[in-house]
C-alpha cells in the first residue's frame, strides 16, 4: 500500500518557507519545502586569516577539504554555489559529435565514478563529490582521497618525467612551486579516466598541469590546463575552483566504492537505450 502525504505537513513555519522561496524554491515553482534533518544553509566561510606555512616558507596546504565554500558537503545545502565561468572546451569536431551522440544514461553508466574506478587527474578534484585530505611537507604533496580509500603522492622537487612512463590513473607527475602556487605536471594518465565527469574522455596524449594555492587559511583554489591533441584543438584552462577547510570533525570516513548496486541491470538499461538509438 502506498500513500501520498501532502507536502504542507512537512513544512516548518511559513516564515522560514518564505525566506527560502527567494532562492531555489522560487525557481522551482514550489511554494513549500520539506524541512529535513541533513539540510544545511551555512554562510560561506570567511577567509580565516593567512594560510599557514611550512618550514621552508611555502604555503602548507594541509587540511580536510570540501568542494565549495561552506566547509562541509554542499549537496544537501541551500547555500548557493558560486558560479564558475569557463571558456568552452575546444574539443575536436569528431569528439564533439561523439559526445553529443551519447545519451545521458550512457554518460552516467560509462563514467569512471559509476564504475568505481579511481578518479584520476584532474577528476580527483573536479569530479570528486567527497572530501579529501592534503598533507604537505617540504618536498612532498600527499592527497588522501575519501572515495575508494585512495591516495596520491607527488614529489615537489621537479623531478623529470621518465622517457617511458607507465600509464597510471594519477599519471606520472613532475611538481614544483611557483611562488605560493604548487604546480603539478602529469602525463601518462590512464585512458580509463575522464577529464570531467560529463563524458570528456581523453587520449594517451593528455597532459594535465594543475595549479593549487591556498590564498587564506579556509580556502584552497585549484585550476588545471589540459593538453590533448587527439581530443582538443588547443590547450584549455579551467576556472579556479574553490575548496573550503572542513568545519566538521576533520576526518575522512572509510568509503570504498564496492559497486553494490546492480551493474548487470545497468548494462541492460544501457543496451536498451543503445537499441532505441539504432
Amino acid at each position: 500500500m502506498t500513500s501520498r502525504v501532502g507536502y504542507p505537513m512537512y513544512v516548518c513555519a511559513l516564515l522560514a518557507a518564505a525566506a527560502v522561496l527567494s532562492g531555489t524554491a522560487a525557481a522551482q515553482g514550489r511554494g513549500a519545502l520539506v524541512e529535513a534533518i541533513g539540510t544545511t544553509e551555512p554562510d560561506p566561510l570567511p577567509p580565516g586569516g593567512p594560510a599557514p606555512r611550512m618550514a621552508d616558507g611555502r604555503p602548507d596546504l594541509s587540511g580536510v577539504w570540501f568542494s565549495g565554500v561552506i566547509g562541509r558537503p554542499s549537496a544537501w545545502s541551500r547555500t548557493r554555489r558560486e558560479p564558475l565561468e569557463e571558456e568552452p572546451v575546444p574539443v575536436r569536431p569528431e569528439v564533439k559529435a561523439k559526445l553529443e551522440g551519447m545519451t545521458r544514461t550512457e554518460i552516467q553508466l560509462l563514467s569512471p565514478g559509476v564504475n568505481c574506478l579511481p578518479l584520476g587527474v584532474p577528476g580527483v578534484f573536479v569530479s570528486n563529490p567527497h572530501p579529501f585530505q592534503i598533507i604537505t611537507i617540504p618536498g612532498m604533496f600527499v592527497q588522501l582521497i575519501e572515495v575508494s580509500n585512495d591516495w596520491r603522492l607527488v614529489y615537489t622537487d621537479k623531478r623529470p618525467h621518465p622517457e617511458y612512463p607507465d600509464p597510471l590513473f594519477y599519471g606520472n607527475s613532475s611538481a614544483w612551486w611557483e611562488g605560493d602556487t604548487l604546480v603539478i605536471d602529469s602525463i601518462a594518465i590512464d585512458e580509463r579516466t575522464w577529464v570531467m565527469n560529463n563524458g570528456w574522455y581523453h587520449s594517451d596524449q593528455l597532459r594535465i598541469v594543475e595549479r593549487i594555492r591556498r590564498p587564506s587559511r579556509n580556502y584552497l583554489e585549484y585550476q588545471f590546463t589540459a593538453e590533448d591533441p587527439k581530443v582538443l584543438t588547443r590547450p584549455w584552462t579551467s576556472g579556479w575552483r574553490k575548496y573550503s577547510l572542513s568545519q566538521e570533525a576533520d576526518q575522512l570516513f572509510e568509503n570504498f566504492c564496492t559497486n553494490n548496486q546492480n551493474p548487470e541491470q545497468f548494462k541492460k538499461l544501457l543496451d536498451l537505450e543503445v537499441d532505441r538509438k539504432r
Binding site: V114, N128, P129, M196, N197, Q261, Q265
Partner: peptide, 19 residues
C-alpha cells in the same frame, strides 16, 4: 560541462538518472 563546472553534485556518484 557548465552544469558540472560550478561544483560537483555530491550525491551523484552512482547513476540515479539511469536507474
Amino acid at each position: 560541462l557548465c552544469a558540472f563546472a560550478a561544483a560537483v553534485p555530491a550525491l551523484a556518484h552512482h547513476s540515479f538518472a539511469a536507474e
